[in-house]
């Protein structure tokens, strides 16, 4: 995890669920990362997978990622290059999956309200700040365990390290 990132915002509303993030009909197809990325958010915003760039940031409302435990709902965004997700709140499993895939999931109600679609924003993880052109928002630092996982680049790398396989 970099200390700071900067990216363009894709803004969505409340309750972005796992079926629109990654439709169930693809979950048991053995797709490549590129193919998985091509279905990201297709039932909510078909433009996203065509136009999103590496380093972009998703900003959304309440209960982001509600629904299934399917990890492709996270990996589809990861493979698309999404660098972070900011939401008013996250569904529990989605939050875990995001951290475990090395994507910082940041909870900030104020930032979510203020940030607009297409804006360029900066996230300073070290100091817990979201910086827009007009304002700054703070967010609490992640618990130690999550930082370790994010710093390892996700749970796979973290587990490997723990097992002494790196």
């Amino acid at each position: 995890m970099a200390d700071k990132i900067k990216g363009k915002v894709w803004k969505y509303g409340d309750g972005v669920n796992t079926d629109v993030l990654y439709p169930g009909k693809y979950t048991y197809k053995n797709l490549t990362p590129e193919e998985i990325a091509s279905h990201a958010l297709e039932d909510l915003d078909p433009d996203f997978s065509k136009k999103a760039q590496k380093g972009d940031i998703i900003v959304a409302g309440k209960n982001f990622g509600m629904g299934s435990s399917r990890e492709q709902a996270v990996t589809a965004l990861k493979y698309k290059g999404v660098a972070a997700i900011i939401a008013k709140s996250f569904s529990r499993i989605y939050f875990r999956n995001a951290i475990n895939q090395g994507i910082p999931a940041i909870q900030s109600e104020q930032a979510s309200d203020a940030i607009e679609n297409g804006e360029i924003i900066e996230i300073d993880f070290k100091n817990g700040k979201i910086i827009t052109e007009k304002r700054e928002f703070s967010f609490p630092s992640f618990p130690e365990k999550m930082v370790e996982i994010l710093e390892a680049g996700g749970l796979v790398e973290y587990t490997k390290k723990k097992l002494g396989k790196n």
Partner: peptide, 24 residues
């Protein structure tokens, strides 16, 4: 599986997690 919560009906603590977590 997100509906792993079902076993609470028997007084177990059961929760859904992700695939990578299960592998770990």
């Amino acid at each position: 599986d997100s509906h792993t919560t079902t076993y609470g009906a028997f007084g177990a603590f059961s929760a859904g997690i992700g695939r990578t977590e299960v592998a770990s």
